[in-house]
Structure formats: C-alpha cells, structure tokens
Computed example of a mutant assay.
Amino acid sequence: MTVESSLGARTAVPPGSATPDGPVRFAVLGDSFSEGLGDRVDGAWRGWAPLLADGLAAEGRKTVLLNLAVGGALSRDVDEDQRPRALAFRPHLASVVVGVNDTLRRTFDIGLLAHRLDRVLADLDAAGAVVLTACLPDPGRMLGLPPPLARPLARRQRTVNAVVHALSDRYDTVHLHLDDATWTEDRALWSADRLHPGERGHRAVAAAFHRLLVARGLAHGTPPAREPAEPPPTRAEALLWLATAGTGWVLRRSRDLLPQLLLLAGAELRHWADGTGTDPLDARADAALAAALTATMGR
C-alpha cells in the first residue's frame, strides 16, 4: 500500500486507473477519528483506515491511501479544504466521518452541517466514488459527564446522526453504526481519552467496514486482523496521556466549548426547575433537524 499524508505526498502517485490492473485509490476525509488518534504505531497515528486499505485490493493490485483527516476538523473543514483535495485524487473509495467536533462548538448549526455534508457526499458520488460513512456516539455519554452537561451534547449528536443516516440512504453509502451499545459499552475498544478508539477499536472498525465492502463485492483482500499487534497501554501510560495530551485536548476546546456547555447546562436546569423538563429543548432540536432535512433532501 502506498500512503499519502494530509501534509503532502511522501511518494509520487500516478493518476491510476479504474481498470482491474490499476491501483485502488482510497481517500479518507474527517477528523481525529479517521486520523487515527488513539492508535500509535512507530511514533505516528495509524488508525482504522490503513488497516482497511490493506484488505481492499486483490492480490497483485495496489491500494493508494490518501488520509486527509485532521484532528479537530469541523464539517466546514471537510467541505472547504478536504473535499477539493479528495476530488483531485479521483478516489474509488472515500470515507467521510465528521460531526462530533461541530457539536462541541458554540456555533453548532445542524442546517449548515447538513448542507456541507450533502455537498461533500454529492460531489464524491458524482465523481464515481463509493462512499463510506459512520454515525458516532455522543461525547457526553462516552466521557461520563453529569446529565445537565451530557444531555445537550447527546441532543446535538442525535441530530448529526439523523442527518448522516438520511444522507447515507440518499447516496447509498457503506454505512457503519457506531453509536449502538455493541460499540459504546465495550471499553476495551476505546483509548484512554474515552473518545477515540484504541488499537482494538480501530481494528474492529476496519473489520466491520471490510465486511460491508465484501458484501457489496468491493473488497477483495484479506480482512484486517481483529487482535492488537501492539501491547495495550498500561494504567500509568493511560494516566500520563490524560494528564498531558488529554488535558491539552480539553483545554484547546474549552475556550469555545466550556462557556457554551455551561450555557446549555443552565438551560437544562432552568427547564427542570420550572417543571417543563427537557421537552421544549427536545422540540426545538427536532424542529431544527426537520428544517435541515427538508432543506437538504429537497435539493
């Protein structure tokens, strides 16, 4: 497998061909979930995409992987920055997994996210790429936040997943459900930060995508191994990560996230205090989602 990074090509890659003798071109768009955070090999993040790429092509055919995913990326970044580069790569397969970072922002707008994601998927589909998508668990539940903080994030992620489901149906994507209990309740799949898969989780994601692709006749290589090749991090290493890189992750987002989370939590508590519960907030989110889907699916 030939690999290009999001920072530029390490190896010159020919345009390739859609014929059986040409390389399979696989573009990866998204955020840290697809960048590989939580699965470090030889000092660099690997993740599920290279593991899947190794099992795409039949014997004698190469796979060229272009991973454009960057930690912290928003739907805007995928639409404006990663989409043009992916289209220029002319991929046969392209994965698009994004949205969690949008839910952690003050400026979260489900209508804009739906519009951007629709444009990304539409352009890749029109270019002839088979698109891979996934819905993700909400970060509040994964982090074990208290209910007033967790509920707003869950509400936002629920709308993101609803948009992803609708667009996945529209473009007949290869879709993976990562927000169900099979994935979220198995802590062995997740890294120390509880937001990104560890090596076992990345291998599980790669294997699940591989099964779906095989069912469509789109993967012809050996399935990714399910068992980790690297030893799991020790408890001391996990605590060190949380105290260094993990703390940095939280602090970088707290400049925008923490004030917004406090406002959202305050709204939750006010509705509980006046006896209305979360029904008005749920209704508002449902209305915004309905408007987003109407606008997007009507185009």
Rank of each mutant, 00 (worst) to 15 (best):
residue 131 V to D: 01
residue 260 Q to G: 10
residue 45 W to G: 01
residue 282 D to Q: 14
residue 37 L to Q: 10
residue 235 R to Q: 13
residue 112 L to I: 09
residue 64 V to C: 04
residue 66 L to K: 09
residue 146 P to V: 12
residue 210 H to T: 07
residue 263 L to T: 15
residue 223 P to S: 00
residue 288 A to K: 08
residue 79 D to T: 08
residue 25 R to T: 08
residue 137 P to G: 09
residue 49 A to N: 07
residue 297 M to F: 01
residue 67 N to A: 03
residue 260 Q to Y: 11
residue 190 W to Q: 09
residue 212 L to D: 01
residue 37 L to G: 01
residue 85 R to E: 08
residue 174 V to Q: 00
residue 38 G to P: 11
residue 49 A to M: 07
residue 275 G to R: 04
residue 271 H to N: 12
residue 250 V to S: 08
residue 250 V to I: 13
residue 236 A to F: 14
residue 3 V to Y: 15
residue 212 L to W: 08
residue 76 R to S: 12
residue 166 A to R: 03
residue 270 R to N: 06
residue 269 L to Q: 09
residue 288 A to L: 12
residue 267 A to G: 09
residue 124 L to Q: 04
residue 278 T to S: 14
residue 90 R to T: 13
residue 71 G to E: 05
residue 54 D to V: 03
residue 90 R to W: 00
residue 83 R to C: 13
residue 195 L to C: 09
residue 91 P to K: 01
residue 32 S to F: 13
residue 229 A to P: 00
residue 140 G to R: 11
residue 182 T to S: 12
residue 22 G to F: 09
residue 15 P to C: 02
residue 43 G to Q: 10
residue 80 E to Q: 14
residue 40 R to W: 03
residue 272 W to E: 00
residue 234 T to V: 11
residue 92 H to E: 05
residue 278 T to H: 12
residue 289 L to N: 11
residue 298 G to A: 15
residue 166 A to S: 06
residue 154 A to T: 12
residue 112 L to W: 03
residue 187 R to W: 13
residue 221 G to W: 04
residue 74 L to R: 15
residue 97 V to L: 14
residue 141 R to C: 02
residue 283 A to R: 15
residue 83 R to L: 15
residue 87 L to T: 07
residue 115 H to W: 03
residue 167 L to M: 04
residue 52 L to T: 06
residue 299 R to V: 11
residue 152 P to L: 15
residue 60 G to I: 08
residue 194 R to I: 03
residue 54 D to Q: 14
residue 117 L to A: 01
residue 53 A to K: 07
residue 208 A to Y: 13
residue 47 G to I: 07
residue 88 A to E: 12
residue 94 A to L: 06
residue 156 R to G: 09
residue 112 L to D: 12
residue 137 P to Y: 15
residue 43 G to C: 08
residue 239 L to E: 06
residue 144 G to F: 11
residue 146 P to F: 14
residue 69 A to M: 07
residue 231 P to Q: 00
residue 97 V to S: 10
residue 56 L to Q: 06
residue 119 R to N: 04
residue 43 G to A: 05
residue 244 T to W: 06
residue 230 E to G: 00
